[in-house]
């Protein structure tokens, strides 16, 4: 239905030709189109509402009212505001501090945590670090086996977790493995869980407490709909997230979850997953994501 916000805005303003000055009502029409486009892209309902309210101020200002190309002007403002809301610039991983550095992957079931753990191990190894992969998912069938296989593919060591063990103990023991093997970074793969699962959320808090990770990364699926805000808020409240990895970005989802998560938590999106292979991890570009959310 909505192909392109540019076309829709052009349509909105076309009716005005020859009627002279733009009115606030015209702007309201245009912003209605912007709001619909955001909702179509899965931006959360409340986030979209607040965002449009914020843009309205700039839009009714001189920039658009006096412009000869109001459609382009509205798009320019919307795009700028979107990308600045998403952080403006790409933000890297925090790898400073005394080694071993600990990176912890958290998120809903099936979001891509284990795969992303493998991708991060590859990235860190490429930077000259010595990562250790730590399977702390004793829940999903064959989760430990999955991470072991990824480690073997990469030539990165994998802590030998006991499938009957407790995830907190596993992580603590992995510190010993890391020092024995001379690893300077630990990547913790935790089991997928619902943000409303009290015991499992408490378990993540205990892991955080014991290992003090420098990065707690929420791994989130780019196809996520309106619920993204509830999930991100809950994980952030419990754990204090340091970053988000958005996965499955190479598909055709418009990715409104990126904006929703960033807007409600303020946590930066640091990386994006663009494929199933272990080299498919890229830095996040706020402006690109802004364009994509707008369908351009």
């Amino acid at each position: 239905m909505f192909d392109n916000l540019s076309d829709r805005l052009a349509e909105t303003f076309k009716r005005l030709k020859g009627h002279g000055k733009l009115s606030e009502a015209n702007i309201a029409d245009a912003l209605r189109e912007v709001r619909l486009a955001l909702l179509e892209a899965d931006v959360n309902y409340k986030v979209a509402k607040d965002f449009v309210a914020g843009v309205r101020e700039r839009a009714v200002g001189q920039e658009v009212m006096k412009s000869l190309t109001p459609a382009q002007q509205v798009i320019k403002i919307v795009r700028e505001e979107l990308s600045s809301l998403m952080g403006g610039q790409a933000e890297g991983l925090n790898l400073i501090g005394r080694p071993p550095q600990v990176l912890m992957m958290v998120g809903l079931q099936g979001a891509g945590k284990t795969t992303t753990a493998g991708k991060l191990a590859r990235m860190l190894a490429g930077m000259g670090k010595k990562p250790l992969l730590v399977p702390a998912d004793v829940q999903r069938p064959a989760a430990i086996e999955q991470l072991k296989k990824l480690g073997a593919q990469l030539g990165v060591p994998v802590h030998d977790s006991d499938p009957g063990g407790d995830p907190v103990d596993i992580c603590v023991r992995a510190l010993g493995t890391a020092s024995r093997l001379g690893c300077d970074a630990l990547i913790l793969d935790t089991a997928g869980r619902l943000h409303i699962d009290e015991p499992l959320m408490a378990q993540l808090e205990r892991i955080k407490q014991k290992l003090q990770p420098g990065e707690i990364l929420l791994v989130a699926d780019a196809m996520t709909g309106q619920d993204a805000v509830n999930v991100a808020e809950a994980f952030h409240q419990r754990l204090g997230l340091s970053g988000v990895v958005l996965t499955k970005v190479e598909g055709d989802a418009r990715g409104g979850a990126a904006l929703s998560i960033r807007a409600v938590t303020g946590v930066p999106i640091k990386l994006v997953g663009v494929g199933e292979k272990l080299d498919a991890l890229e830095p996040f570009h706020p402006d690109r994501m802004a364009g994509r959310i707008l369908g351009m």
């Binding site: 196809m223 709909g225 309106q226 055709d252």
Partner: peptide, 11 residues
């Protein structure tokens, strides 16, 4: 289909 999926599920 994952119930957490948004409009992309239609595609």
């Amino acid at each position: 289909l994952d119930a957490t999926t948004g409009q992309n599920a239609l595609n």
